[in-house]
Amino acid sequence: MAGLDYAYRAAAIVRDAGGYIVGRTKLQKIAYFLEVAGIGSGFHFRYKHYGPYSEQLASAAQHASALKLITEHESVANWGGLYSTFHSCIPADPAPNPARIRMANEMVNADAVELELAATALFLAKEGFTDPWTETARRKPDKADAGRLDNAKELYQRLRAVPTPHLLPAL
């Protein structure tokens, strides 16, 4: 469970991603990339079968919603499932971090599945897998299909090109 200060950190991620994020998966993966790049909010991530995931962030987002730092709207996707859209309600950062904003904006417009694949490959690389893309495809064959793995690799390269305190590793 996250402390209340983490609610502000969760809201700040939404704010820095341009004011809104579509989907819990996307919120999680954006936060993960920011963390690895050294411009994160201090959330701790573990590997789940849907990729890097932070219980702390999930609970912080709930608190942020209750404190009206963000709003969360649930919608029905065209495939029948529910997904959430988060909107930031906190004021603009008086001293924004350009690298964080650039990176978050790159991800907020990405495809959720491709972002999950890229985050998974990065997590596996940090776990010591020498070929994390192959391992990602092996673990998530359904998601890696239909050219999404290649798109995830391109997305990763774009994220890696953002100058951040900790450069993302070459995968």
Binding site: T25, W79, Y83
Partner: peptide, 13 residues
């Protein structure tokens, strides 16, 4: 049953 991530559809399972 249909299967997806957030608003993105993947297929069915």
């Amino acid at each position: 049953v249909p299967y997806g991530v957030d608003e993105t559809s993947i297929g069915s399972v």
